[in-house]
Design a protein around this nucleic acid. Structure first.
Lengths: 141, 141
DNA sequence: TGCACTGTAACTATTTTGATTACAGTACAA
DNA sequence: TTGTACTGTAATCAAAATAGTTACAGTGCA
């Protein structure tokens, strides 16, 4: 039961953009801080830009937040870097037996619980903003 | 962002054990209903047994619930089939730069939000029991 | 005009997951 | 008491997902 690291890395990037005011936040600088390859960062930048969280300009180094950190929730970031925006948190097994009463109905029977669980998770992320994370880091500088 | 199918499959198995009273619920029968290999089922049976959710006897076909379906929550099942029982829902990137103030502190800054999100998810699963799922299926037989 | 970036596509390596093979151990019925 | 039908588990294989990398086109600016 594992979720990929795109979400934490995205928050890391945004926190850096918010806190680092002295130099342009380039993909190379962020890659250095995260400990990965600049292209990985640029791919995430692309997702964050599409979601309206950051603004970049082709050819111009660095990027900046598209709105104040206090108005960016962790849920927005989480959803922004999902591969497919509607991908459910839980997967079903691919081929339950349609000739078995349980196999035929298990999916529908579990839909509500799984949807509720995912919603509860996202609602919790909604209560935290990028500013909360950035402030926490700033206190430990 | 995807979670493996072990959890839904485990619920499928337990629902079958609960609803199928006419023949022993063997790994082969369950594999047929789930649409997978009997060994996959037996591996999950092993986890469910260790968690005290089912009882089996080596050499004796089938298995039965260790306690009433109404007393088995989806959270218990979810935790039972986790590879590592303490595995967090969200992963961190492996090597943030310790020389960067953000890289050094991002992990701690995100700990509370991620833990809260995971807890919220699990608490929601706690509100559903195996009986809820089985009843739902039984209504559609 | 050259440099420093962003933006993407394509490819590779690694890890995770599920499926499969194989086989030892047990219970029970013929 | 022996054969059969299971459970239990290790080991291996295949497929899928993920992260990392190379390569290169496009843009802005000094």
């Amino acid at each position: 039961m594992r979720i990929n690291t795109r979400f934490p890395v995205a928050v890391h990037m945004l926190a850096l953009i918010e806190l680092n005011k002295t130099q342009p936040s380039t993909s190379e600088l962020m890659a250095l801080s995260v400990g990965t390859n600049p292209v990985v960062i640029r791919q995430l930048m692309s997702s964050l830009k599409r979601a309206g969280l950051i603004e970049t300009q082709n050819g111009v180094p660095g990027c900046h937040l598209a709105k104040p950190a206090a108005e960016i929730t962790l849920r927005e970031i989480y959803l922004a870097v999902q591969k497919k925006s509607d991908a459910p948190l839980f997967d079903f097994h691919a081929n339950p037996n349609p000739n078995c009463p349980i196999g035929r109905n298990i999916r529908e029977a579990m839909e509500a619980p799984l949807r509720d669980a995912q919603t509860a998770m996202e609602q919790t992320l909604e209560t935290y903003t990028l500013k909360d994370v950035a402030d926490h880091i700033a206190r430990h500088l």
